[in-house]
Design a binder for these strands. Structure first.
Length: 192
DNA sequence: GGCCAGGTGTAAA
DNA sequence: TTTACACATGGC
């Protein structure tokens, strides 16, 4: 299983090339993108992020200070904009509190993030992997599809998917970042 | 013009 | 502990 998981990774890497994820200019932009992309097309998220950048609001301080209604307007294109506006502020507060604590374990980091309303497992893990840069395997809808297709593996339990990858790969930050990115690229290029 | 996207929280069984 | 449902815009 280990060898197959790795050889499929190499095939995807060969086919699609290095993805260099997450597509963001800063760690904080990863946090923002992770919240905004929840059950939402990335194209719609890009518009929202562009709006924030144009208004110079894509930084911790600005998000914490901006009014809810102004934030709602800027991120409207990402959908669920009312709850995302509120939750983006909560996530920003927690990010600000945690971002310089580099000695925290992945487990502690995850518990802290999961305690925030609006941060579920996938969002927490995306932030840990791509913003804190610690090796945890991110599971999303594309990853579930990938597991079904290549391994005929299905589960209703998020962490079973994580175990599937983490128990069969070396705990390598760059590998985890790139593998997840390649799965997304694979999914976008694969009809059902 | 319908379908659906890089989920999450809450209520009810 | 599991299941059903609300949340919402824009691309295709």
């Amino acid at each position: 299983m280990q060898k197959r998981l790795l050889s499929i990774y190499k095939e995807l890497l060969n086919q699609f090339g290095q993805q260099k994820w997450w597509p963001a200019d800063s760690a904080f932009e990863v946090v923002v993108g992770a919240i905004l992309t929840q059950n939402t097309n990335w194209k719609n998220v890009e518009k929202a992020i562009a709006n924030l950048k144009n208004e110079n609001k894509l930084n911790e301080k600005a998000i914490l200070e901006i009014t809810i209604s102004e934030l709602e307007n800027l991120i409207r294109s990402s959908g669920f904009y009312k709850q995302k506006a509120e939750r983006l502020k909560l996530a920003t507060k927690k990010w600000f509190e945690l971002k310089d604590k580099n000695d925290l374990s992945i487990d502690v980091l995850r518990k802290e993030l999961l305690s925030v309303k609006g941060i579920g497992k996938e969002t927490a893990d995306s932030i840990i992997l791509y913003a804190f840069e610690k090796p945890i395997f991110v599971i999303d809808a594309y990853t579930r599809r990938f597991c079904k297709k290549y391994f005929n593996f299905e589960s209703k339990n998020y962490d079973e998917y994580r175990t599937f990858f983490e128990d069969n790969l070396s705990q390598d930050l760059e590998l985890f970042k790139e593998y997840h990115a390649l799965i997304v690229e694979w999914a976008k290029n694969t009809k059902s």
